[in-house]
Design a protein around this nucleic acid. Structure first.
Lengths: 249, 249
DNA sequence: TCCACGCATACTGTATACAGCAGACAAAGG
DNA sequence: CCTTTGTCTGCTGTATACAGTATGCGTGGA
């Protein structure tokens, strides 16, 4: 059994598990691992998923796997057919369009709410991230941008102060990671200036401007996606960098 | 065991279940029933939910109940704490604000996409629904309006031609039903004219107008919600009419 | 009287067992 | 040769069994 999700005893003999450890239900780690494999291209679109096979492979029983599959189906990574089983979902340009449409609407909302509700703490952290991005750009350390990108957008979501919205955006981010993982990515550099402008609008609490800039930001990301050549089918363009990279533009 | 979800043999002896019956997984009916009880106020906010108790009551085992609870948690009806159990979620004005914020963004998107992608078939059905609404209003048969309301909004979602968006709106509708079920409802009549206007914009493929009208429509619904006096805590204002009524404004 | 600790209980999380549907293959009939 | 039907296998859906953790209460001490 390769890749056991959690060595089931979960705590080494030494300490009697100070209640703080709070081992999370296996469905979480299992879903994370399956999602990772799908995004990384280790599981290809259309590929059949068997409950007991995955269970054996991850060293758990079928129950957590079933629950994880249902979550992944809700997130759009997996297709479930009652009494027939589970498949890795098929991505397509049409599906990408749908994702970008919804994400556009939600990100505009995020920007507007962030402009309304941001606190000094958010502004401080935004400044930090933006400075980090400027430095990375100046020093040509492009490898740091994806993580900073993610932090920037996560900060806005946090500032928006709407947990329901946060959940939805979160679910979409995974899917966009998946989509981007099979396209060439090249927006990292010139999208940073857009972040600076959005942050300024948020700081100024200029709601319409923040919404407009966010809309344009997403529109450009979408355009970049559809302009990029598709990667090898079934394999991430670059298994190491691709996962969790440009997804958060 | 009151209210068995499905008498487990699922088919009476007579016919050998012509494959068309396609008995759906129990998690679906179970989730529907629990959701219904929550919306109807039979299960009160903050009330503890026990897996085996629900299982016994519905005549199924714990597994389908677990899966249903996870789905309901995702929909926002239930709060899950690992190893501690499930509670009926607590609604609050803050939560209502969050729901309306997200729904606003999504409905505006729906209206815009519907204006872009609507087909003659959609226009025909919209006309039907609108005519039905006019008739009901003229004849003072207000009881028919909620269903027509729901059909109207469902039609727009269908015309928007984005399954991902459809899923999200669907999830929100349940929650809004819940919210509305404990407020006095009185928007049925005068909101119908807004529907006519939105439909006209959709028919004319005037995207900005459809979006603007939709935004105003939702804003008024929200204002109406917060202006209305809260109902008895833990009980729907009117168990019969409340469920599935104004929710789709 | 109040607090701390330990025990008991009841519930969740996980594993396993069982039943039934669905697809595949093979054999028989047209 | 093609179609149809029967059987067989493998998987899902559901039920049940087991283990471990969280809470409540009781008891002991300060």
């Amino acid at each position: 059994m390769p890749t056991p999700v959690t060595p089931n005893p979960a705590r080494s003999a030494a300490h009697p598990a100070p209640t703080l450890i709070q081992r999370p239900p296996l469905r979480g780690p299992v879903a994370d691992e399956l999602r990772r494999r799908i995004i990384a291209g280790e599981l290809r679109q259309g590929e059949r998923l068997f409950e007991d096979q995955a269970a054996a492979e991850l060293g758990v029983s079928r129950n957590p796997v079933r629950e994880a599959l249902q979550q992944l189906a809700h997130e759009g990574f997996v297709h479930l057919a009652p009494r027939r089983g589970a498949w890795v979902a098929e991505y397509s340009d049409e599906r990408a369009r749908h994702v970008f449409e919804v994400r556009g609407a939600l990100e505009v909302l995020v920007a507007g709410l962030a402009a309304r509700h941001r606190t000094p703490r958010h502004l401080g952290e935004l400044d930090e991230v933006l400075a980090g991005g400027r430095d990375a750009l100046a020093a040509d350390r492009m490898g740091e941008l994806p993580a900073l990108n993610a932090r920037f957008h996560a900060l806005l979501v946090d500032a928006a102060a709407n947990p329901l919205l946060a959940d939805m955006v979160d679910g979409l981010i995974h899917q966009i990671q998946w989509l981007y993982s099979r396209r060439v990515r090249e927006r990292a550099a010139w999208s940073w200036e857009e972040h600076e402008q959005i942050a300024a609008a948020v700081a100024a609490q200029d709601v319409p401007l923040a919404e407009r800039l966010s809309r344009e930001h997403i529109d450009k990301a979408r355009a970049g996606y559809f302009a990029a050549p598709p990667a090898e089918p079934g394999r991430a363009t670059d298994p190491v960098r691709a996962v969790g990279s440009e997804a958060t533009h």
